[in-house]
Write a protein that binds this DNA or RNA. Sequence first.
DNA 1: TGAAAAATTGCACACGTGTGCAGGTTGTGA
DNA 2: TCACAACCTGCACACGTGTGCAATTTTTCA
Lengths: 342, 342
Amino acid sequence: MATTIKDIARKTGVSHSTVSRALHGSSLISPETVDRIRQAAQEMGYQPSAAARSLKTNRTQVLGVILSSIADPFFNEILFGIEGVAQEKGYSLFIASSQHDPIRERKIVQTMMEQRTDGVIICSSSFSAEQGHQLLSYGFPVVVLNNQSADDSFHFSIYHDDVDGSQQVTRHLITLGHRRIAYLGNSRSGRTTSDRLTGFRDTMQEAGMAVPNEYIFEVAGGEAHLGYEAMEYFRRLEKMPTAIFCFNDMLAIGALNACAQAGIRVPEQLSIAGFDNITYSAFTNPTLTTFDQPKRVLGIEAAQLLVDLLGYEVGKFPLTQTIKILKGNLLVRNSTAAPVEE
Amino acid sequence: MATTIKDIARKTGVSHSTVSRALHGSSLISPETVDRIRQAAQEMGYQPSAAARSLKTNRTQVLGVILSSIADPFFNEILFGIEGVAQEKGYSLFIASSQHDPIRERKIVQTMMEQRTDGVIICSSSFSAEQGHQLLSYGFPVVVLNNQSADDSFHFSIYHDDVDGSQQVTRHLITLGHRRIAYLGNSRSGRTTSDRLTGFRDTMQEAGMAVPNEYIFEVAGGEAHLGYEAMEYFRRLEKMPTAIFCFNDMLAIGALNACAQAGIRVPEQLSIAGFDNITYSAFTNPTLTTFDQPKRVLGIEAAQLLVDLLGYEVGKFPLTQTIKILKGNLLVRNSTAAPVEE
DNA sequence: TGAAAAATTGCACACGTGTGCAGGTTGTGA
DNA sequence: TCACAACCTGCACACGTGTGCAATTTTTCA
């Protein structure tokens, strides 16, 4: 058994209350006693029990983080940002991934509730609104990162401005001289893909360029092999686009692979742009033009917002909705170039 | 405040002990009472307090996981394996990453101790033995995954057989007909890099092939840019190798990039092999020959071993050291081929 | 019908920590 | 020397849950 304040009390000949106060630096206890107790605690290797403390204080100093996938590099960078802030502010992380599985989601929410996490950050692209509301109704401060549902019942959100990013990418392609630009979307992603599509469509319209229906293609996910397969679709069109704007980098990477295999030269014959700027995108061949979504900053802002909320009295959050929208930067690399003259 | 068993007791007109027993399905309580209480608990949205329970039971049902980097895809796949087992066995995860920072390591160990984690899995390549021993001395069951120190004071370990993997890669290159094979190592990684070097050296020797000193090159890390820079070194040698065996995939990817830029055709002019089989290695151009370290299985085995240990009485683990060594598979892709005749 | 056995429930304490309040000790000034 | 203040410390209870044991009620059997 681990040593407790009672053990220390016995050894130093005081009551456990005195020990508790001494270790907290209460001004009620004389400096000498404090020293004596502190030293004894040190010697005995005392470590306070988080369980006992939180039972009393009603605070756990733990933040729950819900991800859709723990193996996804995109979420890991966000996690990195969250962890930094948490560490700094004295919070630990309770992490669980839903793997898009409703049963796991249920379990996760239950675990968070049982653990009495001080707050929860949801970064799961597919986390059901129902489970989220469950948390809200139990009084958990919840911050949602890149919320995918149209639902605005979550008062505290951090977003990346996907419309803006998409506009920048599209403008880049237009500026290069492209007129036949296609969009490869991910039907599994809710708001994100529609925002990116909106940005694309609006910019094209502003530029007075038509987007034929067959240039909008959606696949059911964001993995590389889907991007690969999508290329087969685009190649079969009677008029192939000269540029493809992909929902995310993994799709773009798959498309790049398909091009390499089919002998389509990128960017000479076809320009390809991704989105998100995952680590790999800097090492593709050619290196991938993409949009740098500030993943780490998103994590930092979400954690910061949650920690701020925890500063308020329990249940007395400010009523005002706080929604922060972050912008990223276009990253022009080597997979996009001016189209060749026909 | 969340509802407690006392609230339920008040509502159903029984004592809190009865509620506690009813919710645990104790045979002492009559079926009707159990039903009544269960229903009330349901209605009131009761969620037991993990803190209070673990205070009493001395079990938290939480496993601590220590990683060196939370943003590293390699560790994330391991984590994926760990999470699966944990979920299944009713454990949650407390995750912290040391970021190779001794101060953070200290904090992490302290947090694990305060949280009274039931056990700890260390997957940090650089986690100091000192901190690990700290955990051991507090009686924590500790399972170390791919332990980097020569230290054998950790009784429970899961290893990947790096020597075997390295031998397989080397044999593959030799079988292809290569005679001038170089090894690109990572000096920051302890046992792993030396094991891989050993496997390489032994196999070369068996095949009766000399390895000149300048063909063993080490860089201080495993990031892509270091692989890129290492290529400059190899290119400057008066006799360039015909194949390079890289410590890990990211170094190999960097090397591939350097080749693409320098106009060195892979695999025609130079074969490159990686190690680990991270997701991205399937999408490089050319696709990377590598060794598939069973990361997920490593995680699964580590978690399984730890959970098994927890089945024993507190402090009464089997004295026998348990070390499990897992083997992976060679993955031949397109970055390796027979060398051209000179 | 009565007594013993079985079934059901409550009392009281424990886990480790925090804290209001009362009690005790020391020092100060007249 | 006494009264009072300032300073320390301990008592006792609380947080939410689990459990041995005693108490109470119901059932069983002769």
